[in-house]
Design a protein around this nucleic acid. Structure first.
Lengths: 190, 190
DNA sequence: TTCGGCATGTAACTCGTTACATGATTTT
DNA sequence: AAAATCATGTAACGAGTTACATGCCGAA
C-alpha cells in the first residue's frame, strides 16, 4: 500500500500553518477525519521522526508560566517532499476493509429478524453521520464553490465526498433491509 | 477498532466448506475481495494460531505423490465463536482511510491541469473496477434475489454494495473534475 | 478546588506488508 | 522442458491501537 501517508498528511497540514502535535491531533478530527485520522501517540512519534529526518523544525513556546508547546513548521526539504508526494499517480487501493460488510457476507447464518436489526443499527449511525456532514455543508450553501487556490477547496470536496459515500451506504442498507423484509413476508405466507 | 476480523473471516469461510490455506487465500480474492483481503503469509500465521486455540483442526491430504495439503475445518468451539461474533452490534468504523482523498484535501497546492490529470487517472481505474463488478453481476440478472439462506445471498448483497460504492466514487470524481474545469475556464477568461 | 481541556511523551502489542525460502504438480 | 499454478511456511519491518505516565492551565 501507499507508504508513510501519515508523514505527508502531517506535512500537508503544517504547510497551511505552524502547529503543535496537539493541534495536528485536533485537526485530524475535523474535515480530514472522514478519510484519515491518527492517535496522538502516533502523531508525536511521527513528529519526532520527521524532525530527525529534517522535514520539520520546532520553536518552543511558553504557555502560561511553565507549559512548553512545540510549534512545528516545515523546512524547505519538508515542503519539497510534500509537494512531490502530492503530485503522484497511484493505483487505487486494493480494498477498503469493512468489518460490517464481512459480517453481512456471512449473514445467511443469521435469522432474518437479526439481520434487519443489525442493518438498522448500522444505518441509524450512518444517518446520524450524514446529518452531521450535511449540517457542516450548510456553511457553503448559497455560495460558489470555494476558490480553487484556497484551503477551503479541499475541505469542500472532501465534505461532498463523505456525503456521497454515506448516501450510498444508506441506499445499500435500505436495499438489504428490503430484501430481508420481503423474504420474511414470503416465509410467513409459505 | 474491531478485533481479529481475519480470524472470523477465516472461520466464516471454513463454515461454508473445509479448505486449505491456499484455498482461503484464493477465496479472499473472489467476492469478499471488495471488502476484505489478506496475504498468504498472514493467513498461514492466523491458521496456526487458530489451530493452537482449538478453533480449527486439519487433515493432511496427499496430492500427487508427495505434496501435503492441510484441509482445515471448524471445531465446535470455532463454529460457536464464529456465530457469536456474527451476531454482534458494532459502532461504525471511525474512518475508511483513503490516500487519494488525503491528496485531494491538499490539492490547492497543485495546478488545475494536474488535479484533473490525477482525478482522471483514478477515475479510469474505478470505472474499470465498476465494469468488472457489473460483469460479475450479470449472473444474477433476470433472476430473483438469491435465497436468503444460501451463501449466494451474502455474495449478492456485497456485490451490490461494491457497485454502489464505485458509482458514488465516480460521481464525486466527475464533480471534482467539473469544478476544476470551470475554474480553468474562469482563469483563462479573467 | 475541582474538572475539563491542553500538552507531551513511552511501551507493549496487534495487524498487515514485503521479502525470503522451498518445493510439487499441472499445463502448454 | 519450461512456465504457471499449487502449496506452505518464516523473518523483518512498518503502521496503528491501547495502555501507561505525567503535568499545566483556565473556567466554573
Amino acid at each position: 500500500m501507499a507508504i508513510r501517508v501519515l508523514k505527508y498528511a502531517i506535512l500537508g497540514l503544517l504547510s497551511r500553518r505552524p502547529m503543535t502535535g496537539y493541534d495536528l491531533w485536533k485537526e485530524f478530527d475535523y474535515e480530514l477525519a472522514e478519510f484519515w485520522h491518527a492517535k496522538h501517540s502516533q502523531i508525536y512519534t511521527e513528529l519526532k521522526k520527521l524532525h530527525d529526518e529534517g522535514d520539520v523544525t520546532f520553536d518552543i513556546e511558553i504557555s502560561g508560566d511553565v507549559l512548553e508547546k512545540k510549534q512545528y513548521q516545515l523546512t524547505e526539504k519538508g515542503k519539497e517532499e510534500f509537494l512531490n508526494w502530492l503530485d503522484t499517480e497511484e493505483p487505487i487501493a486494493r480494498t477498503a476493509k469493512d468489518v460490517f460488510r464481512v459480517r453481512m457476507y456471512f449473514c445467511n447464518n443469521l435469522p432474518l429478524s437479526e439481520r434487519i436489526h443489525l442493518l438498522e443499527h448500522q444505518k441509524a449511525q450512518h444517518e446520524k453521520r450524514l446529518n452531521t456532514l450535511k449540517t457542516t455543508f450548510k456553511q457553503y450553501e448559497g455560495q460558489d464553490v470555494p476558490d480553487y487556490q484556497s484551503d477551503r477547496f479541499g475541505d469542500f470536496i472532501l465534505l461532498e465526498s463523505a456525503i456521497i459515500r454515506e448516501e450510498g451506504i444508506i441506499k445499500w442498507m435500505n436495499r438489504c433491509i428490503d430484501y430481508c423484509q420481503a423474504a420474511s413476508k414470503q416465509e410467513s405466507i409459505g
